[in-house]
Amino acid sequence: MHRRALLTLGLLPGLLFLYLPIILLVLFSFNDARLLTGWAGFSWRWYAALWHDRALIEAALLSLQVAALAATGATLVGLAAGLALARFARFPGRAAFTAALAAPLVLPDVLIGLSLLLLFVATESAIGWPHNRGVATIVLAHVTFSLSYVAVVVQARLADTDPALEEAAADLGAPPWRVFLAVTLPLAAPALLSGWLLAFTLSLDDLVVASFVSGPGASTLPMVVFSSLHLGATPELDALATVMLAICAAALAIAGRIGVARRRRRL
C-alpha cells in the first residue's frame, strides 16, 4: 500500500509532465487546421506537406549522413581511448588524457562550436584547409564531442570483463593482434553498438555546434527546424516529430525483440 502510494505520487506528476506535451503534439499533427487551437478533424495533410518539403528532406538526409559518419568515427577513436583507459594501467600523461577526454562532457555547445570554428578558420589560412566548411567539418566536430561518450561506455564494459580473458588468449598462442580481434573486440561489441547509437543520436540532435562549423549550403535537419521555429511552430513540425517518435519506438521494439531472442537462446 505504502509502496503503491509512493509509486503513484512520485511518478505520475513527472510522467504527465514528460508525456502530455508529446501526446498533444502527436494528436495535433493529425489536426486539419492551420491554427493550433481546436480540433478540426483528422487529416494527413501535414504529413503530405512534410513529404513535399524538399528543404526539410534534404536536410534530413544530410543529417543522417553526417550522423552515420560521425558515429563511426567517434566509435573508432572512442574505442581506442576506452581501451587505453581500461587496459593500460599507467602511461605518460594519463591524468591530462583523462581530463581532456572528460572535457567534452561538460563543455557547453556554444564553446565547442566557437572553438572548432576558430580552429577551422585558422587552419584554412595556414594550410588552405578546409576550403569550404560543410559535411566534413560538421563530422569532425561531432566526432570530437561524442567520442568521450563512446569512451565512457567502452571503458565501463572492459572494466567489467575479466582481464584474464586476454591473458588466456595470449597464453593459448594468440599474438596481440589476434587477442584484440578474437577476444577484446567481441567482448566490447555491445558497448561499441550502444556507443555508436549514442553518438548517432547526439549528432542528429546537435544544432549549436553544427551552426558554428557549417558553411553555406550545408544545413542539417536541426538547423532547418530551428530557423522555421523562429517563425513559429507549425503542424508540419509536429508531424516531423511524430515520424521521429515512430522511428524511435520501432527501433526500440526491434532492439527489445533481439534482446529477448538472445536471452532465450541462452537458456
Partner: peptide
C-alpha cells in the same frame, strides 16, 4: 523516463511552443 529524450531536442521544444 528516458524515452521522450530520444525524440529530438528541438522537437521537444516544439511541443512546448505549441
Amino acid at each position: 523516463v528516458i524515452l521522450p529524450f530520444w525524440t529530438g531536442f528541438l522537437l521537444r521544444v516544439t511541443a512546448w511552443i505549441g
